[in-house]
Design a protein around this nucleic acid. Structure first.
Lengths: 138, 138
DNA sequence: GTAACTGCAAAATATTTGCATCCTT
DNA sequence: AAGGATGCAAATATTTTGCAGTTAC
């Protein structure tokens, strides 16, 4: 597991440091999306808030994680699939956000439907955000 | 036009004030989504920033506008359709955000595809966010 | 050893709250 | 006239930046 994480970092030409390893671990455990605040809590303030900002930013740039659009204010991140390459995310994501507990699920197994755009529009990425009540809160 | 705007406000039991009228006008002109900063600019600082915050919040509560999920940090708002009732938005939205100019389009005429959720999940709302290059930036 | 990463301090931004005043009804 | 809306001041919260010290390779 640790090795796999180191692999991911090396593949992106990033040095393997404590904070990066820990934060990637959190994402793997989470099996869903995390907000900056979640990460702060789950690292028990072992790392500076600024480091977390910078780590997340680096991960996004390298295509290790991606941001998830949310209707409320918050910014959330989730692990990218392998198809993601640096700076270019051509994959489609379906996410479910529970109105009750706020948990964000990545519904990887659900296929994103085709959207037909008007003339002149070019699609790079499509996100589907479904909100409602999750299986734990029903 | 002014009348229509007053109508909307009265229907939501809100008093008809300068800032509310102006901001609603902006949304009608915009034919798309606006961020807090857009509104500040387009009102030429005629209204206090705090007033804009409160006005947007009130409009969301009353179901006059809704927030649009965005992958970047920003919060954007757009006019709701008639089906929106106070606090409950059961309609589906498709939005297109241009990576280049940042303009957000409401693609009202595009139907949101059905999403089949796993067992135990209940859908309240679905947003589709398509990003890419818009017709003006291609 | 060197380049990259981190932590601390502080600046810049964004958002919220309290309260006195003003405006809508 | 009364209640709600606004503006101003200030408190909070969030994010960014600079720089010196530390760590990974």
């Amino acid at each position: 597991m640790k090795n796999e994480i180191a692999e991911i970092l090396k593949r992106s030409q990033l040095s393997v440091t404590g904070s990066r390893t820990k934060i990637l671990e959190l994402f793997q455990e989470a099996n869903g999306a995390l907000a900056h605040a979640d990460i702060e809590k789950r690292t028990d303030d072992s790392y500076d808030r600024v480091t977390i900002y910078r780590t997340l930013q680096t991960f996004v740039e390298k295509g290790i994680i991606h941001t998830i659009p949310t209707a409320d204010n918050s910014v959330r991140y989730a692990l990218c699939k392998d198809e993601c390459s640096t700076g270019h995310h051509h994959d489609n994501h379906v996410h479910f956000i529970c109105d009750d507990c706020g948990t964000t699920y990545c519904l990887d197994n659900i296929t994103v439907p085709e959207i037909t755009l008007p003339k002149g529009f070019t699609q790079k990425r499509a996100d589907v955000i479904v909100s409602g009540i999750c299986k734990n809160c029903e």
